[in-house]
């Protein structure tokens, strides 16, 4: 059984069925990719997993424990930490204080491990923001803001990191740097579940891809098999792939 088991998960917003009974298992020792056209329910999936919305139906099991309906902070403390599609930070505070807040929180959920980063500076170096600690988080260039978002999530000590379009809006160079960073996470004991539209970025990072369309899973398998799946080709009209 994988770390995160999702069974028959559904979520409706009034008449809009954002998720229509999704079954997924996501391990916490590698990188799993989720793709799908706009509005296919990817972000909603993250929102429901992390407790932002209660599911309309189905179950979410994390390491054998049912976590559906838990509050977001409780889920985060169990090691399921997400980033946001709209890059987010604590804008009025310094970059260092942003990290410090998350590190102080994360250090209370060490789960018997030694802390990976002892100081905000360590983590800033890791994400390539070394020396930027004194900057105001609210007035950073977009690429740095994305990296800060990842750093804040990492500081909260995730077991499985859920990244919602971390490469959106980045230049190719910035996306490559981010890919290198994400690639290092599994060997540090952090699983990754990644949403993105950027296919070269996804194929470089993920051995496994899950494809959502209209709130249902239409493909799930090795990246190669998924990319050649006729159903997937049809959804993307051959265009984006």
């Amino acid at each position: 059984m994988a770390a995160l088991e999702i069974n028959g998960l559904s979520k409706a917003f009034g008449g809009v069925i954002a998720l229509g009974g999704v079954d997924l298992s996501i391990p916490d020792d590698r990188i799993t990719g989720i793709v799908g056209p706009n509005g296919s329910g990817k972000t909603t999936l993250f929102n429901v997993i992390t407790g932002v919305y209660p599911p309309t139906g189905g179950s979410i099991t994390w390491h054998g424990e049912d976590i559906s309906g838990r509050a977001p902070h409780q889920i985060a403390r169990k090691g399921l930490v997400r980033t946001f599609q709209q890059a987010m930070s604590f804008p009025g505070l310094s970059v260092k204080e942003n990290i410090q807040i998350a590190l102080e929180r994360g250090s209370r959920q060490l789960r018997g491990q030694a802390p990976r980063w002892h100081t905000p500076e360590d983590l800033l170096d890791f994400v390539g923001l070394g020396g930027r600690g004194g900057d105001d988080a609210g007035s950073m260039p977009f690429g740095n803001l994305r990296r800060l978002g990842v750093a804040v999530a990492l500081a909260a000590n995730p077991v499985l990191l859920l990244l919602d379009e971390p490469a959106a809006g980045l230049s190719d160079g910035e996306a490559n740097m981010l890919a290198d960073l994400i690639m290092k996470l599994p060997e540090m004991g952090i699983g990754v579940c990644l949403i993105d539209h950027h296919m070269t970025f996804m194929t470089a990072l993920c051995q496994r891809l899950i494809v959502l369309d209209f709130g249902t899973k239409i493909a799930d398998g090795t990246t190669q098999s998924v990319l050649t799946d006729p159903k997937v080709m049809e959804v993307y009209l051959g265009g984006e792939l």
Binding site: A76, F90, G92, A155, A156
Partner: peptide, 20 residues
Amino acid sequence: RTLRSIRENEQLARAIGINV
């Protein structure tokens, strides 16, 4: 610092495990 994180971004504070 926790209070300031709530002031600046409640949603992000919750997502990193802060009991807002």
